[in-house]
Design a protein around this nucleic acid. Structure first.
Lengths: 137, 137
DNA sequence: GTATATCTCTACTTGTTTGGTAGACAAACG
DNA sequence: CGTTTGTCTACCAAACAAGTAGAGATATAC
């Protein structure tokens, strides 16, 4: 299960994707429309900005906007920023790899299965973008 | 990422699958061979027994054994017992479903994507069994 | 029937993560 | 200047993760 934080982040990006091209959107507006605690959302959007998913403008008329067209940001990228590894085990993670303390990965049965699920999940999250998160009318 | 607990549980079941048919296996033996803290492992095996994945025998010559042939126990079943939902969100879980507080699932973009990843993961974890966890020589 | 081996159960601990909240600060704009 | 907005630091309570300790219950062997 993903954390509320990741869930909120994805929902917020979905909203921003729907507003793309219309200028900056207020944190408060996103929070209200998507039912996210505003101060919590603040920190999430900031984190996404620091990883170049979002841009911001201060002062009147300010707010947040996507740093790139919605179809350019994969869900995998967002997931890794907020939630961390997509794989179920460190020893099968591509971006957060850590060696298994004792088991030999070449002969580990668990390793093999976890690589399969990682690839299956990745195939979807790398292909899908925040454009796909825009809610239908 | 799955918890150490789930990881330990799967490793232990993989070991028991390799020993299937040879009678009860000591907790201590599994713990040593798989490098799992013994007291921690105890509670995991007990939990698996309470969900009918394992059987046990007390006293001399006792230990734990699989309640069914290794190919009969899917990884999905084990995962759900130890780790919980396989889906990334409660609102797309088959076995632990919980309604989204506010979003309308029919029109929610996130919902759609999460169902896809759930199905992709499930396709593997339902098909694979603890027989697949047996380490190669 | 006593000793020993083995699983079972309850309770605790310690550290980290989750899901927030409060409030000062800094930049932009009018 | 003052208002509007994002930024940053600090704090907090509750839950969870990962273990540890030790007494209890049962089965087997002698």
């Amino acid at each position: 299960m993903i954390s509320k934080k990741t869930q909120y982040g994805l929902k917020a990006l979905g909203y921003l994707a729907g507003q793309y091209g219309k200028g900056p959107v207020l944190i408060a507006e996103i929070a209200e429309k998507k039912n996210i605690p505003i101060k919590f959302l603040e920190s999430i959007l900031l984190q996404l900005k620091q990883h170049n998913i979002l841009e911001s403008k201060k002062g009147k008329g300010g707010g947040y906007l996507l740093a790139a067209p919605p179809k350019r940001t994969s869900l995998a990228a967002v997931y890794r920023i907020i939630e961390g590894p997509i794989a179920m085990l460190p020893c099968v993670s591509l971006n957060f790899y850590q060696k298994c303390s004792d088991c030999n990965e070449k002969h580990c049965g668990l390793n093999r299965v976890m690589i399969m699920t990682r690839d299956a999940t990745l195939k979807i999250l790398e292909k899908r973008t925040i454009y796909d998160l825009i809610d239908e009318p």
